[in-house]
């Protein structure tokens, strides 16, 4: 449409995108194809331990995502909407866990809740009971560790979404005589529903793929990513690892494909 660019525009675009396309083909599409081929080679072999690990992974991720969302709603709203001088500092503090990989979180959990963790030590000297000693290695430790990086993540993601909502709606609702609770139910909730849903999916998918925490803490509660790691490094069974990888990819893609669906309903 523009001088000199009328016909060359499309080819310029394609040429500029070509390196990315080659990269994605080489590093994503081709490997995933080979993975599927290996997993489906001589039929898909899914056994009970795999399904058990998959179930555990999904339960853990769903549970962590649910608790994170419930706990982060108020802080996210506060950070997004209420004025306070310490807001910037709080926000920065919340970003700290976002850059930690699972192993670091696992290490921190052991440091705090291990057999001689800081919290039991502190409690022992305060009340004489080393409460929480060794909790890091059980189910409690696992959930606490996941919440450690998921609550800040959910808070910041949701805050970002809350900030984009037009505050006028809320003011309009209150001038129309809506009481706080009905304002939440009729105005705020419908407006934030899709933000909450996509934050939930983000939290879910990060938990689903994380395995550093479990690697550090507990092997008794089997989750799929750790099983993949074990199958590959411990059992040297590439096909088993591939099968489970494919299962995990399938669940992750399913969760990801829900995101545009929840966003489409945005008012």
């Amino acid at each position: 449409m523009r001088s000199g660019e009328e016909k060359s525009g499309r080819w310029t675009g394609i040429a500029l995108v070509l390196p990315l396309l080659l990269f994605l083909t080489a590093m994503l599409l081709y490997p995933l194809m080979r993975l599927s081929a290996l997993a489906l080679h001589r039929g898909l072999h899914v056994d009970a331990p795999m399904l058990h690990a998959l179930r555990n992974s999904i339960i853990l991720s769903l549970g962590v995502a649910t608790v994170s969302i419930l706990l982060c709603l108020t802080p996210a709203w506060a950070l997004a909407r209420w004025p306070w001088r310490l807001k910037v500092a709080l926000r920065s503090a919340l970003t700290v866990p976002l850059m930690f990989s699972g192993v670091i979180v696992g290490f921190l959990t052991i440091l705090m809740l291990g057999r001689v963790g800081l919290i039991p030590t502190l409690l022992a000297s305060l009340i004489g009971i080393p409460a929480g000693s060794g909790a890091a290695y059980g189910a409690v430790g696992l959930v606490v560790a996941y919440l450690y990086f998921e609550i800040p993540r959910a808070t910041l993601a949701l805050e970002s979404a809350f900030r984009d909502i037009d505050i006028e709606y809320e003011a309009a609702a209150s001038t129309l005589g809506a009481r706080p609770w009905s304002r939440i139910r009729r105005v705020i909730l419908p407006l934030t529903r899709s933000a909450i849903a996509s934050t939930f999916l983000l939290t879910f998918s990060v938990s689903l793929g994380s395995y550093g925490v479990a690697l550090m803490l507990s092997r008794r509660f089997t989750i799929l990513p750790v099983e993949i790691y074990t199958a590959y490094t411990g059992l040297l069974d590439d096909q088993r690892a591939s099968t489970m990888s494919l299962m995990l990819v399938a669940v992750a893609l399913m969760a990801a494909s829900l995101t545009p669906l929840v966003n489409r309903r945005r008012v």
Partner: peptide, 20 residues
């Protein structure tokens, strides 16, 4: 498509790359 990896678990992607 370029954003798809962000939704995929790292372990699975690593295994795929190794297999590929």
């Amino acid at each position: 498509l370029a954003a798809v990896p962000l939704a995929l678990p790292g372990v699975s992607v690593a295994i795929a790359v190794i297999v590929g």
